[in-house]
Nucleic acid binder design. Structure first.
Lengths: 180, 180
DNA sequence: CCTGATTGCGCAATCA
DNA sequence: CTGATTGCGCAATCAG
């Protein structure tokens, strides 16, 4: 595991730095047993219904950029929480942003959660990659099989034509009984 | 292809490293028209051959620090930069970390480059998503076609059998002249 | 060298 | 609540 030599350098930024938001640094994950099973039917498509807003992500970044005060008030970013709870009348699905437990980015718990998520992400992406790969291979395989089948259909058709021709000739001579 | 899980380790260093530096590379371009063309055959797989070498490439990475002198924030930390780069003796391809232009993260240029790259990234990923989608659809389509072809082969085979049977019977009755 | 394209990765929001 | 997904930005590379 010569891999990451960075895990130990993570939480230094402890105090006040305006620049970059997340100072991601991780790695050091081992994946002994990738339990990536990938259920049989996993093919889903990309919900491509969000191409309208393009600046959104950036907003987040910008905001984080500015407000990040890694101390205790850490979790900074978008999410305007400014309602008085009339929400129950609007959409049942739109819950008021119940103030979530504020987790400082310094906390060990935070890092712990992050690390777990990072592992999950890697796992998920590995899975996705394998899935794509499998789909590609399947497509190629199907294409091959397809060609073979088409050739076969061609052969059979020709053979049929031949036999039909022969039969039709026999017809002229002694039409006994015939199926088709 | 590149790294593994060690790439993004550098985001905030306050290190003052005279030489070494990596210059991030970005881009500046247009973007009006989504020229996502996706050349005909773009299907390539995930070069999953990146787990073996962990040292060499990394060295270069290790050395990649910028001297980042941020205006407001004192971000500072990490990186063990321990080697002195004797690489020129190893592989001719491993160039000494020629100090690249130091680009402060505050600079407008930096943001500009980042933004360009972000756009490129989105574009590339959109393309990838479409590609995957197409592959999936193609696979499904091929599968359908395959089934149809198999059915057809079955039908033709049966028909052939029938005709052969008929012909063989004719044979028994009046073997005049016959093709096969 | 510069520039756009890729790609692994971490983050955060969301889903399940 | 926890793991899985997913959009996004970053940085390192690759490809011209």
């Amino acid at each position: 595991m010569s891999d990451s030599r960075v895990s130990s350098v993570i939480q230094e930024w402890g105090s006040s730095y305006p620049g970059q938001v997340h100072g991601q640094v991780l790695s050091s994950s081992n994946q002994g047993a990738p339990t990536n099973q990938m259920s049989p039917m996993d093919m889903m498509s990309y919900s491509q219904c969000q191409g309208i807003m393009r600046g959104g992500a950036e907003d987040r970044e910008q905001v984080a950029f500015l407000s990040y005060t890694s101390g205790s008030g850490g979790s900074s970013h978008h999410q305007i929480n400014a309602q008085q709870d009339f929400s129950p009348f609007l959409l049942p699905s739109l819950r008021a942003p119940v103030s979530k437990r504020v987790i400082s980015k310094d906390s060990a718990e935070y890092r712990q959660r992050r690390e777990k998520n990072n592992i999950a992400v890697r796992k998920s992406r590995d899975k996705a990659r394998r899935r794509v790969l499998l789909t590609q291979q399947r497509a190629l395989q199907l294409q091959e099989e397809n060609q073979k089948l088409q050739v076969k259909v061609g052969q059979l058709s020709q053979e049929l034509d031949t036999l039909r021709h022969i039969l039709s000739q026999r017809h002229l001579q002694g039409p006994d009984e015939h199926g088709l």
